[in-house]
Amino acid sequence: MNRPEYASPPSLERLYTDHHNWLQSWLRRRLGNACDAADLAQDAFVRLLATPKRFDTLPQARVYLRTMANGLCIDLWRRREVEQAWLQTLAALPEVESPCVEHQAIVLQALQELDSMLGNLPTRVASAFVMAVGCEMSDREVAEKLGVSTRMVRKYVARAMLHCLQLDARSALDDAETFTQPASPDAVSAPLVR
């Protein structure tokens, strides 16, 4: 079962059988939580389904899966960090002023998406972008809030937008690669079912 070499590129089912339990227990050790571990393990395979990779050996597949799962852990942790900050902000409000739960959730989701989009940009750059674009504040207002010049604010906004555009272009490229991946010899002999 655990032959180190795959004779032919393994199907997703095969990868799932070979690695799912291993990945889930690896995640459980990392996260200390069985539910999150199960979710992320599932998530990792869903991603593999969306963007198939070709593995020749079993260790190769594990290295890939572990790297991906590690990234998912960090994503999860960051999403929760944003969630906690938002919940704390809301908890400090008098009850009558609290937005409805549904609305809170929409804003939270947008904030989490934004946080992951802006990646590891400096806090100041990311915040300037969110204030300027999310709050539609003028450069002058943002400058006052951050204690920098308006010139700086414009630079921050441009830098954050460039970062997002590069990310966007890269992911478009990744998608393109998925479709142009060379077919395995098996796939060539078998007719493609659409």
Binding site: V82, A85, Q88, L114, T123, S127, C135, C164
Partner: peptide, 28 residues
Amino acid sequence: LSSRLEPITSSPDRHLAVDAFTVARTRV
């Protein structure tokens, strides 16, 4: 990309949202 900020832009609590965002980034 800028349209993806629309849920924040259209929220009455957008200033609170930005504060929370800054806090989270600082903590990370």
